[in-house]
C-alpha cells in the first residue's frame, strides 16, 4: 500500500516539477524577470536563477518520475518547495503585488499569496510523504 502511495505521489510531484520547469524554461528572459520581481536577489543572481531554476525543476521532475537518484530528487524538491514558500511569505510580509510565476507566464497566473503558499505546502507534504514511504520500504 505504502509503495502504491509513494509511486502516485512521485508521479504527481514529478509532473508538477516537469511542467513548472518546462514552461519556465521556454522563456528564460521571463523566468529571470519573475525571479527578480520577488525583489530578494540582485539582478545578476536573478539572471542566473532564471537559467538554473527551470533546469533544476526539470531534472528534479524527471528523477522523481523515473526513480533515478530519487533521494537526491527529494532533497532538491524539499529545497525548492521551501524556497518558493519562503519567497511568497516574504512577498506577503512586504505587501508586494506580483504574480507567482510558478508555471511561467500562463494566461491565468495566480497572485503570490495564501493560495501559492498552500500549493507549495502541498509540494512539501508530498516530498515528505515520498521520503517517509520510500525509507520504510
Amino acid at each position: 500500500m505504502s509503495r502504491f502511495v509513494s509511486v502516485v505521489a512521485r508521479v504527481l510531484l514529478g509532473l508538477v516539477f516537469l511542467a513548472a520547469g518546462g514552461l519556465k524554461g521556454m522563456n528564460p528572459h521571463g523566468s529571470a524577470i519573475a525571479v527578480g520581481a520577488f525583489q530578494m536577489t540582485p539582478p545578476m543572481l536573478s539572471l542566473v536563477g532564471g537559467i538554473l531554476l527551470p533546469a533544476i525543476e526539470v531534472v528534479t521532475g524527471a528523477a522523481l518520475l523515473t526513480g533515478f537518484f530519487l533521494r537526491g530528487a527529494l532533497v532538491l524538491s524539499f529545497g525548492l518547495s521551501t524556497m518558493f514558500a519562503t519567497g511568497v511569505v516574504s512577498v506577503m510580509v512586504r505587501g508586494l503585488d506580483l504574480e507567482c510565476g510558478c508555471f511561467g507566464h500562463l494566461a491565468i497566473t495566480p497572485r503570490a499569496g495564501w493560495g501559492t503558499i498552500a500549493f507549495d505546502g502541498s509540494l512539501l507534504a508530498l516530498t515528505l510523504l515520498i521520503a517517509f514511504t520510500t525509507r520504510r520500504r
Partner: peptide, 12 residues
C-alpha cells in the same frame, strides 16, 4: 542523499 542532490544539481 546530499551526494545524489549534488549530482542532479550538476546535471541541471
Amino acid at each position: 542523499w546530499m551526494k545524489e542532490a549534488a549530482a542532479l544539481t550538476g546535471l541541471a
